[in-house]
């Protein structure tokens, strides 16, 4: 038997093992865009493997691009400590700011303004991108941002004289929302399902309310969980019981 025949036998052996496996799982394989109509079962199997590897590589890349977010609690030399809330957990991250490699920005509306390390102060809410090495994030970019709360709850009390709402969220947290002249107020029209601009008098106890507040700028002289509302969207009780 020459080399050519040996090669032919090995190809046949591969096919004998691969073909039954591919046929066995072929009904469960989802068609992919890249698989052509005339692709053989072997090609489909190989393509599926390639797609899986590609998506895993992309997922790993995205994982590396994660953001570390929190409130600055300490600044010492080139290390910034932030306290982060991740779900119900509190975490602390050390962020290393490199004088030449790290870029710092302040987000102002639709623009980012480059700032210096000295502009960073305790209490700032920052977003950091970079690599975690030995429990320290080697920062590529640091952004100072505004922290918002976006919540939904039910109106439990309305003060028509002091213009505030008390809201109990579905997580059982209570918030007091001061309605200011700047607050954008909307309501769902139950019939048309369109969102319409409204006045404070239209809101009533029992309605659902979706609200946005700034945790960074809650307003002046506020107690805990009391904020100036930036925007409220009211879903009338009548809609909920439909």
């Amino acid at each position: 038997m020459n080399k050519k025949q040996s090669l032919l036998i090995s190809v046949v052996a591969v096919c004998l093992c691969v073909v039954p496996a591919v046929i066995a799982i072929s009904p469960t394989l989802e068609p992919t865009k890249s698989a052509s109509i005339s692709a053989t079962p072997e090609e489909k199997g190989a393509q599926h493997l390639l797609d899986t590897l590609k998506s895993q590589a992309e997922a790993l890349q995205k994982k590396d691009q994660r953001a570390y977010v929190g409130i600055v609690s300490k600044i010492k030399d080139s290390i910034v400590t932030i306290n982060a809330t991740e779900g119900v957990d509190e975490k602390t991250y050390s962020i290393k700011i490199d004088d030449t490699l790290t870029h710092l920005y302040r987000i102002a509306g639709t623009k980012t303004n480059e700032i210096k390390k000295g502009d960073l102060k305790e209490g700032d809410y920052i977003i950091v991108t970079g690599q975690m090495l030995d429990n320290t994030v080697e920062a590529n970019d640091v952004y100072i941002d505004e922290q918002f709360l976006v919540k939904t709850g039910r109106i439990s009390e309305i003060s028509k004289t002091d213009y505030y709402l008390k809201v109990i969220t579905y997580d059982k947290d209570e918030y007091t929302l001061d309605i200011q002249n700047s607050t954008r107020q909307f309501m769902l029209n139950v019939k048309t399902k369109e969102i319409e601009s409204i006045g404070f008098s239209k809101m009533k106890e029992g309605d659902s309310v979706h609200f946005v507040v700034s945790k960074t700028n809650p307003g002046t002289s506020k107690e805990k969980n009391r904020y100036d509302a930036i925007r409220v969207l009211v879903i009338p009780q009548e809609f909920s019981v439909q």
Binding site: I9, S10, V18, A21
Partner: peptide
């Protein structure tokens, strides 16, 4: 049967089994 023929068949079977295992595992 020559030695290289045996090696070729064995390698073919091993490669085929590994490939099948990976595909089935991924599907499961």
């Amino acid at each position: 049967m020559k030695k290289e023929t045996g090696v070729a068949i064995s390698m073919g079977i091993i490669f085929g089994l590994v490939f099948s295992f990976v595909v089935i595992l991924n599907t499961q």
